[in-house]
């Protein structure tokens, strides 16, 4: 599998990272060498192997249905690059 520039642009779009033409070139080279390394796995037959679902041999622990969090709007908004007293504020979403 070799990654071309178009594919990389598409992935970058999915990952919401802008890449310019100059970057794409070196990214293509780097990613292809990494994938060449990764693709060593292809030589291994894993047809009958179950994928690992968890390292821990236990079931998901649950908590009681209690309200013990929230009500900390100031804390939540404090680090925001742009906010008002009540909301996070972001540039308009163009649908």
């Amino acid at each position: 599998m070799s990654l071309d520039k178009e594919k990389i642009k598409h992935i970058a779009k999915l990952a919401r990272i802008s890449v310019d033409e100059a970057n794409v070139e070196s990214l293509t080279k780097d990613l292809n060498s990494i994938f060449k390394f990764i693709e060593q796995l292809e030589e291994l037959n894993t047809d009958k192997v179950e994928p690992l679902s968890s390292l821990l041999n236990q079931s998901l622990r649950s908590r009681k249905d209690q309200i013990n969090d929230g009500g900390i709007r100031e804390k939540i908004l404090k680090n925001s690059p742009k906010e008002n007293e009540e909301f996070f504020v972001v540039p308009k979403v163009v649908e």
Partner: peptide, 13 residues
């Protein structure tokens, strides 16, 4: 960036 998506892409880049 002019909208949310561009803000994301530039912020992360």
């Amino acid at each position: 960036g002019k909208d949310l998506i561009e803000m994301y892409e530039n912020t992360r880049s």
